[in-house]
Design a protein around this nucleic acid. Structure first.
Lengths: 333, 333
DNA sequence: CCAGAGTCAGAAATCGATTTCCGAAGAATA
DNA sequence: TATTCTTCGGAAATCGATTTCTGACTCTGG
């Protein structure tokens, strides 16, 4: 490893001067400057980032803590974040929490010991890591979900409105007996989307029926089980609204297994888009979230937070978009 | 920030002793040890990872340089890698090269200045970054593609055999006029899969026809354009083999646009699986790669390489798996 | 012509942990 | 009992860059 001292020796100046030439933070005699550059080139010198980080007391790393990169919702979000990070000179460290508060906490811990510059996090149910990071005053942006009692920059989508639109679309298609599979009660998105479902029913004067609602775990298996449970009731629902992509897939698998087809046997609208959803037949109607934009917005907020730690936290709410495809075709008379 | 000196003062020992207690690298009097632990707990001390990294001359970061995390192929691969990284105490830095050699080089540069412990990389066509990293003797694992002249640990799939199986499956279904959309000539996977296509034809005594082959860019738009060009020929192919997932999607879009249906108008087999491929109708026949395993294997190789930098590089080749679904149904008489 | 302000290079301190080196004390061996 | 080995704690060096401080020098204005 060639160090800044080697460069200094070679070019006949002090290490301080080399540092100044390379950082450009202060004027340096052009002649010395030239010598330094020459020495850097000759020696193939590359500054040691770790040493710099120690002195500066921070790194150029952002952590993104999400439940699972294999969920397309997060994949595209991470891409949006990474694009901002790159233009701002940061690198993104990927952390899969798998909805496990302990893992979240472990990653939060790592963020602190590794002195990362900031965190973008989708909180797990108990948000242990979020608490830690908040106490340590780490620049942090919450995505997708709110956390009670934490004041931090947040990027959300308008879950209630999106769910309203999705369910209302089913109602307009002539469906009235509409089931809903949503997520855990402790997760804000699950409750917000359920609220949208209820308000759409209310708007159409349809009575809310508890036995048409299931709370599952936002995973494929959970969606499958919830669908089974709904179908095992005496009267089958005419339509179904599912509040995330994995559970939608699980529900569709259950329908396929039972030989039921969408939309003829049961109409379906899912929250979250699915990659290439319109390629396939019957294509799935979804309430699409602007996932790339979510990540990008989080990145921009994080950048601003790092630049001015003092300013009051802001919340950005992005709009969902209803993608009407085949599984929600109007009810046949 | 509380430092190791604060802990030392509080517990009445030297910083060296604190370090020894916490790292467990040397025996320390149980009584002192206890005092140190107490002080750590009281002060909420957390070691500074950056300082440690400087002293140790390496970090606990792995970079994964891939073309695009939004491609499901890489998504699942990254997940496999991250799982290994976590159990081995590393963190994964995500780098999207977008197939751009300049971006790859920039990330390679960052790997070196940030003293990352190792790299898992899917090389771009000119592999500029790979050269840099190789010269610097950074622990490195190549995935998905080989690079001429670089001796490094490599994880591949048996592309030729996979392609052979896929095309052979079409032949067995009675198709003979089979087109192929593959990737750039400089990319090893594109050529290997094309070779598999040719060898399947040869095995069945079908003459290879240059005008049934297209080289595109492994992206959606490229697949679309290639499909158009194939369909614009006087005689339409009976079946199609596409050598990656994005181009398959592009080709399917083109078919949809022209009102052609798989498999009735043209049978289709694609390389790379697509998420939830069997959920949708008509479901797509694919040559599936064990993407999670690819990432996992790369992680294990990287771990070993870091542990023993001297040992000769090894190449692991994983098997593909033919997933027969609807788009390759046998030809109707 | 001199005081005060401004510029710039270099010496040295600094970031915070790890690790080498040294010396003291106790254990083991002759 | 004398000598050698071990064990273990602390002082200090170390990793490599950044930054503060110091002092030499130049420039400006009275």
């Amino acid at each position: 490893m060639t160090t800044i001292y080697d460069v200094a020796r070679r070019s006949g100046v002090s290490p301080a001067t080399v540092s100044r030439v390379l950082s450009g933070r202060r004027n340096v005699d052009p002649e010395l400057s030239e010598k330094v550059r020459a020495a850097v080139a000759e020696l193939g010198y590359r500054p040691n980032g770790v040493a710099r980080n120690l002195r500066r007391a921070s790194t150029n790393l952002w952590a993104v803590v999400i439940s699972d990169i294999e969920n397309p919702f997060f994949t595209s979000l991470v891409r949006g974040l990474e694009d901002v990070a790159q233009t701002e000179g940061y690198h993104v460290v990927l952390c899969n929490s798998d909805e496990d508060p302990a893992k979240e906490a472990a990653y939060a811990s790592a963020v602190l010991t590794e002195q990362m510059a900031g965190v973008v996090i989708s909180p797990t149910s108990t948000a242990e890591g979020v608490q830690q990071l908040d106490e340590a005053k780490t620049p942090m942006v919450l995505i997708d979900r709110r956390v009670e009692g934490i004041e931090a920059d947040t990027v959300l989508v308008d879950n209630e409105h999106g769910a309203f639109e999705g369910v209302n679309h089913l109602i307009e298609g002539g469906y009235r007996r509409i089931a809903c599979i949503t997520g855990p009660r402790r997760v804000s998105t699950a409750m917000d989307r359920l609220a949208g479902y209820r308000s759409a029913l209310r708007g159409a004067g349809i009575r809310f029926q508890k036995d048409l609602v299931r709370h599952a775990d936002f995973r494929e298996a959970g969606g499958f089980a919830a669908m089974e449970s709904l179908l095992d009731q005496p009267e089958r629902p005419e339509a179904l609204f599912v509040t995330n992509n994995l559970m939608t897939v699980g529900a569709l698998e259950c329908l396929a297994k039972r030989g039921l087809r969408a939309p003829d046997d049961i109409a379906v609208v899912g929250f979250d888009d699915i990659p290439w959803a319109d390629l396939v037949v019957p294509s799935l109607t979804t309430v699409a979230q602007p996932t790339y934009e979510l990540g990008r917005t989080a990145g921009l907020l994080l950048k601003d937070r790092i630049a001015s730690p003092g300013r009051p936290p802001s919340t950005v709410t992005l709009r969902t978009e209803l993608h009407i495809r085949a599984t929600s075709a109007p009810k046949k008379p």
